[in-house]
């Protein structure tokens, strides 16, 4: 699904990613943990095609092709989805329109006809039900005036509607209370399938109690310094990041 080889990237001439290697197979859930400033968010931004990052070395192969050949919107259409750490408010655009535009952009890419309104509504209401979202939510502007939990649920709703192959979750748990966290995690778990892979970027182990990863990687100073199973997350929870950083330094 995704093969990252010696990936290096900088922002404003400063190298943030210093050679990342990662292999992700279909159906796997990889957690990427690390202290603030370790490059976690940079990794998800580089993978999703955000401007402002310069890839200075290495390669990323997605489903057999060069990921960097695709622009951000093309990656999305090809099934890469980034759930934002800070979902963006878009005044003047309602959620319904936004979701529909996104769904139809992907369908266009796949050579499918646009989804008609009834079909769309049926589907979106079903997904909203799973995420315990109120119906009026569709008519509100994208993320405008949403609480932190609502914004994150909105990200997962988009993910559920778009049915991506590769889901990048960038600190989806940060700032969530336990109820919201559970709802979001259930939403994610409902999407787990043998074909779909997840990269869950988080600072806290708590999320991984609900979204159980197959692999845990620890990122520090722009490199993966340790990889392991789920137990690595528990170890980090107990000991903090200090010992990792010391090892890396």
């Amino acid at each position: 699904m995704l093969s990252i080889k010696d990936l290096r990237a900088s922002v404003d001439g400063k190298e943030i990613l210093k050679g990342i290697n990662l292999e992700i197979k279909p159906g796997e859930v990889h957690a990427i943990m690390g202290p603030n400033g370790s490059g976690k968010s940079t990794l998800s931004h580089v993978l999703s095609g955000r401007d402002g990052y310069e890839v200075t070395g290495g390669s990323v192969t997605y489903n057999g092709g060069d990921l960097f050949e695709l622009e951000a919107h093309e990656r999305a259409r090809a099934g890469v989805f980034l759930a934002f750490q800070y979902p963006v408010e878009i005044p003047g655009v309602n959620n319904m329109y936004f979701l529909k535009a996104a769904v139809n952009a992907k369908r266009e890419q796949e050579g499918k006809p646009e989804m008609d309104s009834m079909e769309f509504l049926t589907l979106v209401r079903e997904k909203m039900g799973l995420l315990k979202m109120k119906p009026d939510f569709l008519h509100r502007n994208v993320n405008e005036g949403f609480s932190g939990g609502e914004k994150k649920r909105n990200e997962i709703l988009q993910m559920a509607m778009l049915e991506p192959n590769l889901c990048l979750l960038d600190e989806t748990d940060s700032g969530l209370d336990i109820d919201a966290l559970q709802i979001v995690a259930e939403g994610v778990n409902a999407l787990r399938s043998p074909e779909r892979s997840f990269v869950v970027v988080t600072h806290y182990q708590r999320l991984l109690d609900y979204i159980v990863p197959d692999f845990v990687h620890v990122l520090a100073h722009g490199r993966i310094v340790k990889s392991g199973g789920r137990e690595l997350a528990l170890e980090l929870e107990e000991k903090g990041y200090g010992w990792i950083e010391e090892q890396a330094a």
Partner: peptide, 11 residues
């Protein structure tokens, strides 16, 4: 804003 929309497949 532009990136958010593009990241959802909107050209």
């Amino acid at each position: 804003h532009m990136f958010y929309l593009r990241s959802r497949g909107i050209d």
